[in-house]
């Protein structure tokens, strides 16, 4: 695990519908320390997914720089694991093979990589599902696979793009609690994108509020861990922090 530095990051592209250049991300700077859990929160169209796609290397940035452990990002790579809103599992591979995919790409032998995959599946309570295909699982189970597939490759930074936005509310809360548990156990560096303020405050060490492609503020979350919804629902500090972030996002 390594740190992530973003300096004066910008993204400008030509919008054929408008007929002019549009700035989706404007001069964003952000430093994420090793082992930190940072949530970037903002409304639709604020540029948060664009930032994540640039860090992942899926799209090029047009200004500034992105450094992972001091090295500039050029295209996608296994140092940055990604969890997608659409899960993006390989439907033709079993759950075990999905999780073993990253190690396989690194050239890890079959016995060894299946051992790694089994360890991570156990971490997400997925041992029973190892031999099944993604289509046979519920959405919540599929996203558990998505999370451990990214983790099993031991990336320097874990990038999560609204990963729980397409599961039902109860499952979402369970997944959030499990994610904080897994994070405490493995301590990966995480950047988590969401539009859900409560989710951001629940998960993060730090919440970065974004609007119209600019950083509004950077708020430290000093809630104790382990965190659970039962404990935090009526917690005054949680409400105060959520209120502050919500006000920031809505005022912009």
């Amino acid at each position: 695990m390594k740190d992530l530095t973003i300096r004066n990051l910008s993204k400008t592209y030509f919008d054929p519908y408008v007929g002019t250049n549009v700035t989706a991300v404007h001069d964003v700077s952000l430093k994420v320390e090793q082992g930190e859990f940072v949530c970037i929160v903002g409304p639709s169209g604020c540029g948060k997914t664009t930032i994540l796609n640039m860090i992942a290397g899926f799209i090029p940035h047009t200004g500034g720089e992105i450094l992972v452990g001091g090295r500039p990002v050029k295209g996608p790579g296994p140092d940055r694991g990604v969890v997608f809103q659409s899960f993006a599992l390989f439907p033709w591979r079993t759950v075990l093979e999905n999780v073993a995919f990253g190690p396989k790409m690194r050239g890890v032998r079959k016995v060894e990589r299946e051992k790694i995959a089994h360890e991570y599946l156990a971490l997400a309570k997925l041992t029973e599902a190892a031999g099944r295909y993604p289509a046979e699982l519920s959405g919540g189970m599929q996203q558990r696979v998505g999370v451990v597939r990214a983790l099993a490759n031991e990336p320097d930074v874990l990038l999560m793009d609204e990963p729980f936005a397409s599961v039902d509310a109860q499952t979402r809360m369970t997944l959030q609690e499990e994610l904080t548990r897994i994070w405490q156990e493995k301590r990966p560096t995480v950047i988590f994108i969401t539009h859900d303020v409560a989710e951001a405050v629940f998960l993060a060490n730090r919440v970065v509020a974004l609007s119209k492609g600019r950083v509004l503020d950077d708020i430290a979350v000093d809630l104790p861990r382990p965190r659970s919804w039962d404990a935090l629902n009526d917690d005054a500090r949680f409400k105060e922090l959520s209120g502050r972030v919500l006000q920031l996002v809505r005022s912009a």
């Binding site: 992942a56 996608p76 990604v82 993006a88 995919f101 990253g102 790409m105 490759n153």
Partner: peptide, 8 residues
């Protein structure tokens, strides 16, 4: 994208 970010 998932495959690329897993090192394919």
């Amino acid at each position: 994208n998932a495959a690329a970010s897993l090192g394919a």
